[in-house]
């Protein structure tokens, strides 16, 4: 089937959501468009390719469930899951550390699997379930891993902690928390510059041996 709709298959209902923006760009004078838009759009505008400007800026429709709540959102393709969570959904528990997949501060669960949200494009979680640190507790009742981190002093400054906890929960669920060495290996994607590692390992071991549902 030939793609009719910007390359999207008909059965894949990715719809541009931001029609007002497209209308704005179409209606606005070239001068305004040039003033507001970066190089690529300027070039397109100079060539009177209004449709192309719209395509470049087009926001896409994204259906995602975050911490049990279904959202229908409108995002630019270049928005990462991390920025979507923090800037659009105001879930600032997930931290931006390095923003390059090297520190693990941004770790969240997508369909139950831990990933770096800074290297995940928001559009790639379309139709999926995302869990962030805000989604672990049940009301005022903390998740066992959160309790264990407090008990064992598994943090100092706390910046890496949401990522550590999300990773720690996944580590147990994956079955990779059977020894101190295994925990250290499978937690290596989460860097703690305060050096709380021994306490983090203790917290994970306690939850693991406690046999609580994580």
């Amino acid at each position: 089937m030939e793609d009719q709709n910007n390359g999207f298959e008909a059965e894949d209902t990715l719809q541009p959501k931001d029609n007002p923006r497209r209308d704005f760009l179409k209606k606005s004078s070239l001068l305004t468009a040039v003033a507001l838009t970066p190089g690529v759009a300027v070039k397109a505008a100079e060539n009177h390719l209004d449709e192309k400007i719209a395509a470049v800026f087009e926001k896409l429709s994204l259906d995602v469930t975050v911490n049990g709540t279904a959202h229908n959102l409108s995002v630019e393709p270049r928005v990462t899951l991390l920025d979507l969570l923090r800037e659009q959904l105001h879930l600032t528990g997930t931290k931006k550390g390095c923003d390059y997949g090297q520190c693990g501060a941004c770790t969240v669960h997508v369909d139950g699997h831990r990933v770096n949200s800074c290297l995940t494009l928001a559009m790639m979680v379309d139709g999926k379930k995302v869990t962030t640190i805000e989604g672990l507790a049940k009301g005022d009742e903390l998740h066992p891993m959160q309790e264990a981190f407090i008990k064992h002093d598994g943090f100092q400054c706390g910046y890496c902690t949401p990522g550590q906890i999300m990773s720690a929960v996944a580590c147990i669920r994956e079955g990779h928390a059977n020894s101190e060495a295994e925990i250290r290996e499978y937690m290596s994607g989460n860097i703690c510059r305060c050096g709380a590692y021994p306490n983090i390992v203790n917290a994970i071991q306690e939850v693991k041996t406690g046999g609580q549902q994580v």
Partner: peptide, 28 residues
């Protein structure tokens, strides 16, 4: 900024990647 497409079959993927300026994304 870039455009993002998510073709549903292999033929559409092959047609899309043949165009200049395109890149495949899988895990990313």
């Amino acid at each position: 900024q870039f455009q993002y497409v998510r073709p549903a079959n292999q033929q559409s993927v092959l047609a899309a990647i043949a165009q200049p300026g395109t890149k495949i994304i899988a895990g990313g």
